[in-house]
Computed example of a mutant assay.
Amino acid sequence: MLKWGIAGTGQIARAFALALNRAENCRACGVAGRRAEKAAAFAAEHRVERAYSSVEQMCADPEIEAVYVCPPHPFHAEWARCALKQGKHVLCEKPMALGMEEIHEMQRLAREQGVLLLEGYMYRCHPQTAKLVELLKAGAVGRVRSVEGAFSFRSEFNPASRLFDPALGGGAIWDIGGYPLSMANLVAAASSGNAPVRPERLEAVGVWAENGIDLLSTALVCYPAGIVGRLTVSLTSTEDNSLRIYGEGGKIVVPDPWVCDRVNPPQGRILLTRSGEAAEVIEVPCDRTSFTLEAEYFASLAAQGKTDAVFPVMSAAETVLQNELLQEWERKAAGK
């Protein structure tokens, strides 16, 4: 039973607390945030055993074995380092950090301490993703040529909100761009082996608010195997958030690729159309949310003494690639 501390008290922390309370091999032992009173209220509301006055105090508690890091983006690296220096396993919400130097430092600390450090892309732990990888490896649609993915929703512009505040890492690319980008990376890796594949080229355009954050953006990525990804993120409109993969012998459509329902276990569903044939509907049942599956998978790795994930869950090497590409996406979208 892995004993968790939650570093953060926002909406995603609430989802993870619920996930821990439903997990078979996890226990929600502590919570801390930027304000002690919020941590106390969080603990009482979400069945967390203890609230701490600070993240430092929680990380120093020998009973805490793993820390889920989920504050606003600029605090990810600081709080993760705090936990790692105390020898805690760390599951860090995406993006792991806003700078590559911070990510390399976090990974160095994890290696030195012999602990597990993963970036939280929970959809990678859902059986629907494993089924998608299985289909791609089996050549279900022949040689893959393109992938289209989006993550979008409409939110009223509010410069005080985390989503729109540049000081808090706001903007569509950093907040949600990791989803379609990581999926394109997954498709490229599954189509040519399991190792991360760096695109040969990335181009992007975007629309920017007056305060300097991106409201929406589209990126084109081209992988060495001849796979082109068309990726869109938006905070201004809700678009088609499905995943579409086109191969020389057919197509795959995943209506809900991110399976991100935080309360009810999302059921997987894949539509496979081989050339000249009717669409085949592949149902992928699941009895847990992606967040619970993520927590349980992380706990199983920690129990085995593992210090990295196995594909399709995001590995340390893929985290480096992913965040380098997010930085490039932002630069290209800004015309730099």
Rank of each mutant, 00 (worst) to 15 (best):
S315R: 14
V197G: 07
N241C: 08
G169M: 09
S234E: 09
L202V: 14
A225F: 01
V253H: 02
A209T: 04
A278Y: 00
S182K: 01
P266A: 10
A44Q: 14
L116E: 02
V90A: 14
A279Y: 00
A41D: 14
G305F: 06
D308F: 05
L231C: 04
E148C: 04
A66M: 00
S300I: 00
V228I: 12
C26S: 14
V221N: 01
G206L: 08
A19C: 11
W208C: 09
C260D: 15
R47C: 12
K332E: 13
A83D: 03
V207P: 00
H46G: 01
T319C: 12
R108F: 10
P166Y: 05
Q107V: 10
A195G: 00
V284A: 01
V228M: 12
L215H: 02
A309S: 14
P71G: 06
G171N: 12
P159T: 04
I270C: 03
E280Q: 14
K88P: 07
H89K: 12
A209N: 10
V207D: 13
S290N: 10
G8H: 10
G8W: 07
G5F: 02
L215I: 07
I252V: 10
D214P: 14
Y52G: 05
E280V: 01
Q128R: 04
S234N: 11
N264K: 14
K3S: 12
P180Y: 07
P285Q: 03
C125N: 15
A160W: 00
T238M: 04
A150N: 08
G206C: 12
F291K: 11
A225R: 13
L135G: 03
S161R: 06
L325P: 10
K38C: 01
H46A: 00
A219G: 07
L181G: 13
D61Q: 08
N323D: 14
V228K: 15
E283H: 00
I213E: 05
A160N: 13
S234M: 13
A302H: 02
G114W: 10
G8M: 11
G30A: 15
Y223S: 05
L98I: 03
L132S: 09
L271S: 06
C26L: 01
V187K: 05
D256P: 02
P71T: 12
I252A: 01
K332I: 02
V141K: 03
F16M: 15
V141T: 12
G335A: 09
L135H: 03
P72C: 11
I173H: 11
R124C: 03
E203S: 13
E210Q: 15
S290C: 10
R201I: 00
M314E: 14
A167R: 15
E78A: 15
R124F: 06
K306N: 04
A184Q: 07
G171F: 09
K137N: 08
H104G: 08
N323W: 12
L18N: 13
